[in-house]
Simulated assay, not measured.
Amino acid sequence: MQKFDVLNGNKAAAIGAALARPNVIAAYPITPQTPVVEYLTEFAANDEIDAAMSEVESELSAMSIVTGASLAGSRTFTATASQGLSLMYEPYFRASTLRLPIVMAVVNREMISPQSVWGGQQDSMSVRDAGWMQIYAEDNQEILDLIVQAFKIAEDKRVLLPINICYDGFYLSHMTEKVFIPEQEKVDNFLGTYKPDHILLDPKRPMAVDPLTNGDLLMEYRYKHLKGQQAALDVIEEVDRDYGQLFGRTYGGAIEEYKIDDAEYALVTTGSMTGAAKEAVDLKRAEGIRIGLIKMRMIRPFPKDRVCKALSKVKSFGVVDRNVSFGWDTGIVYQEVKSALYEGDNYVPSVPIVGGLGGEDITINMMMDSIDAIVKAAEERISSGTIWMMV
Rank of each mutant, 00 (worst) to 15 (best):
S116D: 01
C308H: 10
V320R: 04
K304L: 06
D369K: 15
R285A: 15
S173W: 01
E38I: 10
C166K: 08
N46I: 06
A12G: 05
I291M: 08
S64D: 13
W118D: 02
T193G: 00
I153G: 05
D129R: 11
K224D: 09
Q115K: 00
D139N: 06
Q184W: 04
G16C: 12
K204M: 12
A18F: 05
F190W: 07
P114M: 02
N8T: 10
A62N: 07
T330D: 07
A208H: 05
I153K: 03
A263S: 08
L40K: 11
G16I: 05
E142C: 06
W328N: 15
V6H: 11
R300K: 08
G358Q: 05
R94M: 15
E183A: 14
I49K: 00
G131W: 04
W132P: 00
I135D: 08
A44D: 11
L191N: 01
W118M: 07
E48Q: 13
S82L: 09
P206W: 05
V56F: 05
K278W: 03
L87M: 14
T97D: 04
R241A: 14
Y89K: 12
V348Q: 03
Y258K: 12
V337C: 06
L87G: 01
A51H: 07
G252R: 09
G73M: 13
H174Q: 02
T176N: 14
E237D: 15
R158S: 14
M111I: 03
Q115I: 12
P349R: 06
R290I: 08
I299F: 09
M366Y: 00
G252I: 09
V187H: 06
F247D: 04
G131Y: 08
V159F: 09
A280N: 10
Y171N: 01
S350E: 07
G253P: 03
Q121G: 01
I102T: 05
G169Q: 01
P349A: 11
A377W: 07
N164W: 05
